[in-house]
Design a protein around this nucleic acid. Sequence first.
DNA 1: CGCAACTTTGATACAACTCAAAAAATGTGG
DNA 2: CCACATTTTTTGAGTTGTATCAAAGTTGCG
Lengths: 216, 216
Amino acid sequence: MLTAQTTSIAGSGHIATAAPLSQLATPMLYARNTEIYGEGEPAEYIYQVISGAVRAYKILDDGRRQIGAFYLPGDTFGLEVGQKHRMSAEAISNCTVSAIKRSTLLRQAACDNDVALSLLHITASELQRAEKHILLLVRTAQERVASFLLEMADRAASAGTVELPMSRQDIADYLGLTIETVSRTLTALEAQEAIALPSSRKVRLINMRELRRLDS
Amino acid sequence: MLTAQTTSIAGSGHIATAAPLSQLATPMLYARNTEIYGEGEPAEYIYQVISGAVRAYKILDDGRRQIGAFYLPGDTFGLEVGQKHRMSAEAISNCTVSAIKRSTLLRQAACDNDVALSLLHITASELQRAEKHILLLVRTAQERVASFLLEMADRAASAGTVELPMSRQDIADYLGLTIETVSRTLTALEAQEAIALPSSRKVRLINMRELRRLDS
DNA sequence: CGCAACTTTGATACAACTCAAAAAATGTGG
DNA sequence: CCACATTTTTTGAGTTGTATCAAAGTTGCG
């Protein structure tokens, strides 16, 4: 069974095996920092990242922003069982996403078990991610940052170097830290030669053993 | 459509409408502090709390325990899409739960859409809970404790007084705080007359406006 | 090239943690 | 039902990690 990460909504996954659906997948372009949908808006579409990166977030009452997830190419996002989006989503970089109508999907799910099960798997993956995120948030700054780097490496690494599509502020809002703490922690990891920072958006993972020990 | 909180696995919810399933629901008794299932174990059953309270948790590598959720009467827990339980579950108090075989359920889900959709709704509820938990963990101790009390009041209050089935340690491990901080925070809330503590396991919510302001 | 945005570094403050001990609650056997 | 042992909760004192406030670098873009 495919996971949400690899289930294509327009490709070869369960959903797409329902013939009419793949035809309904619409490619869409979003410029850097533009909104894809807002919290509380009717959930019209579910999306899959084709290229670029997306952040999903909520704004807390005190004005802070908590990023719930980053979505990279292949990831599905924006699926809601209820009527409304529970987070906002924005393009981190210019990106292309493929979208299909939620109403179509839910209608399909009501009669097609494969579709219903795919939705279940996507939601279960999101749950697993959220639970991992909870564990992250009770750790030290070093552990959070190390864990974040390893996660990004898993998802987007090429030859030991991670290209971060997101800003320090994005990382801070994801890890529940301040931008200063993220910056200082990266500097500290560099000083202890666990990573190198050839540029602020490029991280070379040098001492994986040490990073994994921190992630543990 | 029913939510996970109100979907009965042995009663009138979607799952039970599949006639053979309700017959398969088995009532089970667990004594205080006994394990219902362990992390990593094959997920044989899914459960619903009939009476008592349950905690689901993971042990971190440094030995700390993070409680992911408390389950109260009516709540469904232990549903996994994968083969294994991703957390451990223990009875907080002596409790009775109703259990049905996961294999049966998944077999049903593969052909019965109502069952598949019920599983989707239960999982989506868990996801929503986990996302709320994430937002909790980036707030101050006072905000976390106030939010926790309001959550418990919503779920189990009778006449403004919340009976806490769990210990201070349980609360601390749920909120990502130490037991001392939880205790001090409750004392502080009492001092500012937002709550009263007739006993350590009983909390009377006095100033709801103030608590909601903290929860916000 | 110059301005705006982003990132890093520095100094200080404070919330929550740690270690320690007292107080209160709970359980147990006589 | 009481006396004692154990567990849980509260309180205290001191430390520390992260936030805050401030400013200096750095990068990228028009």
